[in-house]
Structure formats: C-alpha cells, structure tokens
Amino acid sequence: MAKPIIVNWGGVQSSFDHEKLDRAKLYGKRQRWILDPHGQRCERAELSRDGTLLIRSGMTAQGYFDEAGAWIPNSQLVGLDAEGKQLKHVPSTLGEPQPLEGPVDAGEILDLAVRSVYVLSPEGLDPKLEAALKDGKVFRFPFCYRGGYDPEIAYLVGNATGYFALVGSPAVSEWCELQTTIADDAGADDDGDELDFEMF
C-alpha cells in the first residue's frame, strides 16, 4: 500500500490514504472490440512497413540511445532543464509532511493541467482543516508520487461526498488583444491529437 499524503497546516498535521479516481470507477467504461468471424475478440498487433515482422503485445520496449546507438540505462538518466543543465532530484512527497498553503484562490485550479485525481480517505484530519474544506476552501501543496525531476502541484478540495487531490502542472494561456487575430492557416488544421479526445 502506498504511503499516505501528509500535509501540515498551521503546525497541525493531517494524513490521507489515497486512491486514483477515474471514470471507470464512477460510471463504468466503454470499450470498442474487434471480433473475428467466430465472434471472438481479436488481438491488435503491428506489421513492420516492409511486412517482414509481426509485432505482438510485449515484443517492444522504449529507451534512450546515444549517438553511437548504445542504449542508456534508466539509472543513468537525469532531469534536464531547457538549457540542458541537470536538475535536482526531488524525493517522493508521500509519507513526508508537506506544507499546505491556503486557502488559495479557487481559480488557481482552473490554470492547472490536471494529470491525476485522487480520492482521499482521512486517517487523521485537523478539525480546522476539515471545516475549511467543508466550507469550499481550496489548499495547495507540493506533490511528487515516486520522486523524480518533475515535481507537481496538488490542490486539496472537499465536498459533500469526500476529499480530493487534483495533481498536475500549470497550464499556459495567453491574453487576446484586438490587434491579434488567429490566421486561418489550413496547414495548422490538424492539431486535434493534442487534445487527445479519444474514445473511452
């Protein structure tokens, strides 16, 4: 079982067990199945362009290679910033008390590119924090699940059904001005994949 999320607000700690929340857990899911002529489910595979190799599930892997073509083990990889400089490794925040900031402006969450949503089970909840969450207040704390070079931001919220952590990174939108209009560039028409509005 994963270590709990522990936050510290005003010198008082609160602890939460956590479980990822997704659509399937709330609403179920829909899958598109391909059936063979006997009504049995087909397996999706790939064929190399030259047709010589049938690639089935489990036959490929991904990794980093240097210019000489040598594979670089994951243990040698580090996080690099835009200038190529090594970043500091951030340990996992689970099981370690994290400073809880807030209440913060609820609108901050609207600028978060949410990667994960967790439903939280309080194991020891500060009554003052509980009251603030029930009152619709929003709090922020640092989050890094496994440890790494890309720490995320988490927002702690509550409602009548429970407590939740929304985890992600800031998203960037831009101001629109009268003088700046969007060009109808036919070549830029194919950015649909970026939204990833795929079947579920």
Binding site: L53, L54, I55, R56, G58, M59, T60, A61, Q62, G63, Y64, F65, D66, E67, I72, Q76, L77, V78, G79, L80, D81, A82, G84, K85, Q86, L87, A113, Y149, D150, G168, S169, P170, A171, V172, S173, I182, D191, E194, L195
Partner: peptide, 30 residues
C-alpha cells in the same frame, strides 16, 4: 477560433552533455 491550452514544458530526461534519442525497439521476438 479554438486553441488548446498547453501545459508548461517540463524537464526532459537525458545525460548532461550527451545527445540522446528516444526510440522504440524490438525487445523480443514472438
């Protein structure tokens, strides 16, 4: 017009001073 709001670019994985490429490769035959 409609444009997606993008996440701020995060760090990349690599080795300082080395130019790496990320590739998919065959790990096993059938």
């Amino acid at each position: 017009a409609l444009e997606s709001v993008k996440e701020r670019p995060g760090p990349t994985s690599g080795v300082p001073g080395k130019k790496l490429s990320f590739r998919r490769y065959l790990a096993a035959t059938e």
